[in-house]
Design a protein around this nucleic acid. Structure first.
Lengths: 221, 221
DNA sequence: AAAAATAGTTAACAAATGTATACTTTAAAT
DNA sequence: ATTTAAAGTATACATTTGTTAACTATTTTT
C-alpha cells in the first residue's frame, strides 16, 4: 500500500513518539501574532482558523476537520515565528502532535516526500483560496452564505433522508465571520429566506440542505 | 553576486536560447480552460490575469508587471493542461519566454534553486491571497476599491509632487472586475467620493494618490 | 473623415445589506 | 437551582450598492 503524503507524515510522527497535546472545546491552541516555538499537526478533532481585526471583528478563514499541519504558512521562514492565525478548538477535544519547529523543518527539508507534501499543501490552499476569493468577490452576501454552506458539505456533510445533514453546529456569528456579514441578525434574515424557499431546514441547530442546486445557482462560477 | 530565484530562472532561459514571443496590447496569450503545451515566463511588459464567469462577467485576479512565471498554478500536475486564467497583454507589447511544459517541469524538478522558487511562489501567492480575501470579505465595496488602489502603489506607483502617481491606466470596468462591483457607474460614484474628499485626483486618465492614509483607514486589518 | 465602439459621468430609483433594538430561547457559569 | 452569557429571531429604519438610462468624451475601426 502506498501512503499519501499526510499519512506518511503521521506515521513518522507516531514512529518517533512525538508527544501530543489534548485541548478542550473553545480553548485556543495559538493566537494570531504570538510567537510559537512549536509546529502543530492536528491528529484528531475540529479547529477553526481566524484573525481578530483591529476593530475587534473576527475574520474566519477555515475549519480543519481532519489531520493536517496547522499554520504552515509562515513557519518555514525561520526569522518570523509569530503565528498567522488564531486556532480554536471546535470539537469536544482535539489532539495535536507538538514538534519543535526547527526540528520539524529540518526533517521536512531532508525528506523528499514531505517537501512534496509542503509544495502540494501550498498549491492546494492557493487554488482553494483563489476560488474562494472569486466566489466572495463576485457574489453578494447571500451568494457568500450559499457558497459557505455549500463548502460545509465536504467538511461535515452526511446523507440523510431529508437531504444532506451538516453534522456540526455553526452559529450565525460564525457565518458572519466567514462571509463578512456585519451581524448575526443580517445572517438570520438571509438564512430565513433560504428556509422559506425550502433550501435548508434546521434540526437540533444543524443545517439540513434540501436543495443543493439552489445553492449552486447562487454561486457565480 | 547572488542571483535571486527569478534571476536564476531568467539567466537559465537566456543561456539556453529559449525562444521568446512578442504580443501586442489587448491580445490574449492564453484563454481560461484551453489546453496549452507551453509554459510562459513574462520577460517584459504588463499582463492581466482574469476569468470569464458563466454569466459573462469578468473577474480580474491580478496584474503582473515584472518578470514572472505565468499560470504556474496548474501546470505541474501533468494530466491537467488547461489554463487556469485568461492572460491579456496590457502594455503596448509584452514578451514571453515560451518553454515546452514537460521540459520546463523536468528542468525545475532537477534544480533545487527552482524547486525552491516554485515553493516560495506558491507560499507568497497564498499569503497575498489570504490577505486579499480578508480585505475583500471584511470590507464593503468602497473598502475594496481603496484596497485595490492601494495595491497599485506597489505595482505602478511613482512619487511626484502632488503625491503618488499610478503610472498605468486602469478603467472603471477594470476596477469593477477586481472588486466585484457590478457596473462602471457604481465605480464612478465611489471614485467621485474619493475625489471629493481629496484622496485622489485623475490626470491623463491616471490616478494620483494624495492621501494614502485615507486609503489605509478604509481597509480593515 | 465618418462611424462605431469604448469609456466616463450623472441622476433617479430599486434592492441588498447594515445598524440598532427588543424580545425569546438556549447554553454555560456560579 | 439560579443567574448570566450566548445565540436566534423579528422589526424598523439607514446606508450602501445595484440597475438603468441618458448624455458626453475619447479612442479605434472602417
Amino acid at each position: 500500500m502506498v501512503l499519501t503524503d499526510i499519512e506518511y507524515l503521521l506515521s513518522y510522527l507516531e514512529a518517533h513518539h512525538v508527544p501530543t497535546i489534548k485541548k478542550k472545546r473553545h480553548t485556543y491552541l495559538t493566537y494570531h501574532g504570538l510567537a510559537e516555538h512549536y509546529t502543530y499537526v492536528l491528529k484528531d478533532g475540529i479547529i477553526k482558523n481566524s484573525i481578530i481585526l483591529q476593530d475587534g471583528r473576527e475574520y474566519n478563514l477555515s475549519y480543519i476537520a481532519k489531520p493536517d499541519v496547522i499554520s504552515l504558512l509562515r513557519d518555514e521562514v525561520s526569522r518570523s515565528t509569530d503565528q498567522p492565525f488564531n486556532v480554536r478548538i471546535e470539537s469536544e477535544y482535539a489532539t495535536f502532535y507538538q514538534v519543535n519547529r526547527v526540528a520539524f523543518w529540518k526533517y521536512v527539508n531532508s525528506t523528499p516526500e514531505l517537501q512534496n507534501y509542503v509544495k502540494n499543501y501550498y498549491r492546494k490552499k492557493l487554488s482553494e483560496n483563489i476560488l474562494r476569493l472569486q466566489r466572495m468577490v463576485m457574489n453578494g452576501k447571500k451568494g457568500a452564505i450559499c457558497a459557505f454552506i455549500y463548502s460545509l458539505v465536504d467538511l461535515f456533510g452526511r446523507k440523510v433522508n431529508e437531504g444532506i445533514l451538516i453534522d456540526f453546529v455553526v452559529t450565525n456569528d460564525d457565518i458572519a465571520g466567514f462571509c463578512g456579514i456585519s451581524s448575526r441578525s443580517s445572517v438570520n434574515r438571509m438564512l430565513k429566506e433560504l428556509r422559506t424557499d425550502g433550501v435548508i431546514t434546521v434540526k437540533n441547530h444543524k443545517f439540513i440542505i434540501q436543495d443543493v442546486s439552489y445553492l449552486l445557482d447562487q454561486i457565480a462560477n
